[in-house]
């Protein structure tokens, strides 16, 4: 039996396969398709203090090798998450649960972190400062380094749980952004979020999405994600959860080779709902067949 346990700072995962926020619901929706208890961790859909209806449709468009979304952080709010959803995850005792918070302000994120800090079933908190589909907060945070610092420090202060900061690659200097998050108290970095893009409705002579911009994800952004993880891994010493278009075990290995410590599956959960579970088995098989271990998966000097 090959060893697959990974240590992400204070967070221990039974294997490095994670699911990305917004692509895996609250985990339970996928229980029909795979044993979610075999995953390293699942990341819950972003939560805000109050319920959010989300953006007006259309909300998605297919692109070559990917898709764009403009969901707008639609969610039931923190009360429903804590009272009705998290208890359903009690039955899954081996998979770690990462709660993703996406408050529109510093104060909202602090309040969310305080509330989730009290919940045993939450193993880590991911601070989403990189959603491109909202008017306040989201990606705007990532583009303001002093804000990233204040936000990360403020959330850090109110929780003892492992703190993950989720970064966007749509910034002038992702390394500077990563360093800011690390210096401000992040335990783990996750990257990348979707990339702002656009589509046009020719018949209507109008932008396809009501907000104009939408977030591009899927294999189309994988090369960008690999470079972002590579660049950040060269510059910071804390663990990285890499993501962006992961569709196969080869993609998982690529992210591990460029410096990720765990790898998250995103859009492809929609295309093949059983994929993340299959990747757990395929990664073990890859390690056995190649004679590698997770710690030897490094680029040659």
């Amino acid at each position: 039996m090959v060893k697959t346990t990974v240590q992400l700072g204070p967070l221990t995962l039974q294997n490095p396969i994670v699911t990305a926020s917004g692509t895996f619901g609250y985990g339970v929706e996928f229980a029909d398709y795979l044993d979610i208890n075999k995953l390293g961790a699942i990341t819950l859909k972003s939560v805000t203090l109050n319920p959010r209806e989300g953006n007006a449709p259309p909300r998605i468009a297919e692109t070559p090798s990917g898709m764009m979304n403009s969901i707008g952080l639609a969610n039931h709010g923190i009360d429903v998450l804590m009272d009705s959803i998290l208890p359903k995850l009690e039955a899954f005792d081996r998979v770690k649960v990462i709660a993703n918070i996406a408050g529109h302000s510093l104060e909202e994120n602090v309040e969310l972190a305080k509330r989730l800090d009290q919940v045993d079933r939450v193993d880590a908190i991911e601070l989403n400062i990189s959603c491109p589909n909202v008017d306040a907060g989201g990606l705007a945070f990532c583009q303001d380094l002093p804000m990233v610092s204040r936000l990360t420090k403020a959330v850090r202060k109110v929780t003892l749980k492992p703190l993950i900061v989720k970064l966007s690659a749509s910034v002038p200097d992702i390394v500077a952004l990563a360093k800011t998050a690390v210096e401000s108290g992040a335990d783990i970095l996750s990257l990348i979020n979707t990339i702002p893009g656009m589509d046009v409705d020719i018949a209507k002579k109008a932008l396809f999405f009501k907000r104009g911009s939408a977030g591009l994800s899927g294999p189309a952004i994988r090369p960008i994600a690999l470079k972002a993880v590579y660049d950040v891994a060269q510059s910071v010493d804390i663990p990285i959860i890499g993501m962006g278009g992961v569709a196969s075990v080869e993609d998982v290995v690529k992210f591990l080779l460029v410096g990720a410590d765990a790898v998250s599956v995103g859009m492809m959960n929609f295309v093949r709902p059983s994929l993340s579970g299959e990747l757990v088995d395929q990664l073990s098989a890859y390690l056995v067949a190649s004679g590698e271990t997770l710690s030897t998966l490094k680029l040659k000097a």
């Binding site: 895996f24 998605i60 979304n69 929609f270 709902p273």
Partner: peptide, 9 residues
């Protein structure tokens, strides 16, 4: 995108 209630698209 998904068909089973997750993507909210």
């Amino acid at each position: 995108a998904c068909g089973f209630g997750v993507c909210l698209g």
